[in-house]
């Protein structure tokens, strides 16, 4: 199975004076899990709604394979999706699935099957009004999986899931990717999906700020060196002479972007007595925060 490629081409969405998504372009390839990341309100859900034909882009377009989602004859067979799913509280979980089954092109047996798949086999005959948040999240996933689709687009699918559910979901998405399907999952927490995704697309304030493999993102995580010298004033002079950027940390300075070897050699040459020389690597979380931070206005 090879899933369709999902493409966003210069998509912009303007809500009155708010530009929720701003000239956003990226591609989601089959065979890998792509994480779509950004802080709250950065435009993830809006982007996915435009990709799936629920909202009209102000400009640009989203494609599933070679054409927009809505132009496929039975699009839900191609892309299974779950975007903030709503449920009628008076309908049973099974009845909820059965109302969408005809247009997805599956029978009632498949509805039972996906309920089993998401661990809800025992609750299909209960009204959704009595479901917990995690049960609703699972029912939303079951709806997305009805067609056994070659592509899945899930908006914050881990919300409300218990740890066991998260591990299960992770396994499912990994398996989908291995089978060659296209998998796009959004999240506002990188660390939540770092064990699941291969590719990351990071947006902030509606704009693309980073797109690469997770490994490249990790490699790009900034490193620096913590230097603690017997003579702090001498160290400060050295940092200024070299034009390094540094900030105080404990008794010493954290020098950004300079490997320990280079910092140590410079101190040695300057005759500074060192008490500590340590490499500091930014973790993924910090890298994510740096990428999505509101840019400081240059003073």
């Amino acid at each position: 199975m090879t899933g369709p490629t999902l493409t966003l081409e210069g998509v912009t969405k303007q809500f009155g004076r708010v530009r929720a998504v701003d000239d956003l372009s990226f591609t989601v390839r089959p065979g890998v899990v792509t994480g779509f990341l950004g802080p709250n309100g950065s435009g993830k859900t809006t982007t996915l709604r435009m990709l799936l034909g629920l909202a009209e882009p102000t400009s640009g377009r989203g494609l599933v394979g070679d054409r927009p989602y809505a132009e496929h004859p039975q699009p839900a067979r191609l892309v299974g999706s779950s975007l903030d799913p709503g449920f009628h509280p008076g309908r049973t979980g099974l009845a909820h699935l059965e109302t969408y089954a005809p247009q997805v092109g599956v029978g009632r047996a498949r509805c039972r099957e996906v309920l089993e798949l998401v661990g809800m086999g025992d609750f299909g005959d209960r009204r959704v009004g009595a479901y917990s948040m995690g049960m609703k999240q699972r029912l939303g996933l079951a709806t997305a999986l009805l067609a056994d689709p070659p592509a899945v687009v899930l908006d914050e699918p881990a919300n409300g899931l218990d740890p066991e559910g998260i591990v299960w979901l992770r396994g499912l998405l990994r398996r989908f990717a291995e089978e060659g399907r296209t998998v796009l999952v959004s999240s506002h927490v990188l660390t939540e999906v770092q064990h699941t995704v291969d590719e990351v697309v990071v947006i902030a304030r509606g704009r693309l700020v980073h797109a690469s493999s997770l490994a490249e993102l990790a490699a790009s995580a900034e490193s620096g060196t913590l230097v603690v010298a017997a003579d702090p004033a001498g160290l400060a002079r050295l940092v200024a002479d070299r034009g390094w950027t540094a900030e105080p940390e404990g008794a010493g300075l954290l020098v950004r972007g300079i490997p320990a070897a280079e910092a140590g050699a410079a101190c040695f040459a300057a005759g500074l007595e060192l008490h500590q020389l340590a490499t500091r690597t930014e973790d993924l979380e910090a890298a994510f925060l740096r990428l999505t931070a509101v840019p400081e206005v240059a003073a």
Binding site: L54, P75, S81, D84, G86, F87, H88, P89
Partner: peptide, 16 residues
């Protein structure tokens, strides 16, 4: 009721 319970989203996903 589709708008009230937001099931209209799924309705339009399966039939745009």
């Amino acid at each position: 009721s589709e708008f009230r319970h937001r099931t209209i989203t799924q309705t339009l996903l399966v039939e745009p």
